[in-house]
């Protein structure tokens, strides 16, 4: 257990160094042509699986997101078995309910747009993810930021899992509180096995706050190296650009191309993932 509080002594300097501010400014940002954006995953959970196709827009545009509703979308496995997707709404296409990804299969998507352009993804290997060994929780004391400024118990999930040896593994973790997913880019939790390859390991989710009697649900998702790199760059670019730890901005390189016009970029990512989950209720 740890108590988080601010010593009185740091007040002066804290004030001095937290006077940074951001102000909204009006600047003219040039606009490029709109590009197709694809987002979709084949999972090993029961279907239907879904893919969303939208368009990018000028940065300063106030128009709603433009969706693509007239594309032909088909997912293939390594045996060229076709799984057509059908348009639902808001740019989302869904497979038949019976379509479920199989671990160790390879999937790719082919999208034919109304103008005849064909978008292809690179094949993605669906790597089976190991189940979560166990799920628990821990807590610490934190001073409330609003009156009454008392110390409160803050709970956070602690998951135990095993990483397979002899291969590089990449994971995304998702945390649900009472069936509500923690959203926001800062909650995107990506981890590789660089430090603990082949070991059982513990993952402390200290940035996710829970209270007594809350239900914790944790999902672990397997990722390919390419998907992991894409999501890492996605998170980094959105959260750290402009800060001193930010890198130079660059295009996020996904895994799709326009077969008819390779010079036109296709944004987004189509991947395959295996998902396992665990649930518990905080009952101290």
């Amino acid at each position: 257990m740890k108590i988080l509080k601010k010593p009185i002594g740091i007040f002066t300097i804290s004030w001095l160094l937290t006077i940074a501010c951001d102000d909204i400014v009006q600047i003219e940002i040039p606009a490029n042509e709109n590009l197709i954006v694809v987002e979709g995953w084949v999972t090993d959970l029961p279907g239907p699986q879904s893919i969303t196709i939208t368009q990018s827009s000028p940065f300063s545009s106030t128009e709603p997101v433009q969706t693509i509703h007239d594309a032909s979308v088909t997912v293939y496995n390594q045996f060229n078995e076709a799984h057509p997707y059908y348009y639902q709404n808001k740019g989302t296409y869904q497979s038949l309910p019976g379509f479920q990804g199989n671990p160790n299969d390879v999937y790719r998507v082919e999208i034919i747009l109304a103008n005849g352009d064909t978008l292809l993804s690179s094949p993605e290997f669906l790597i089976e993810v190991s189940p979560i060994d166990s799920l628990g929780y821990n807590w610490y004391l934190r001073e409330r930021t609003e009156p009454p400024r008392i110390y409160e118990q803050v709970y956070y999930p602690v998951a135990f899992a095993s990483d397979p040896p002899d291969q590089k593994n990449y994971y995304e973790w998702k945390v649900y509180k009472n069936d509500s997913l923690f959203t926001g880019i800062e909650k995107l939790t990506l981890i590789d096995d660089k430090l603990f390859n082949g070991n059982s390991y513990q993952n402390d989710f200290r940035l996710f706050d829970f209270q007594k009697k809350d239900t914790i649900r944790i999902e672990i998702k397997s990722l390919s190296e390419r998907a992991f790199d894409f999501l890492t760059a996605f998170k980094f670019q959105v959260t750290s650009l402009g800060t001193r730890t930010g890198t130079s901005p660059s295009p996020l390189k996904g895994n799709l191309i326009n077969k008819n016009a390779p010079h036109i970029r296709v944004l987004g990512y189509f991947g395959a993932t295996s998902i396992k989950s665990e649930e518990t209720i905080i009952q101290p």
């Binding site: 600047i27 490029n32 959203t183 130079s248 944004l267 987004g268």
Partner: peptide, 22 residues
């Protein structure tokens, strides 16, 4: 500084798109 040339949405998050004119 590099300005984005566009924007798009991925995982319900706004992504500024930088095309490379650094």
């Amino acid at each position: 500084i590099t300005f984005p040339s566009g924007k798009y949405w991925f995982q319900n998050t706004l992504v500024p798109d930088f095309t490379g004119n650094r």
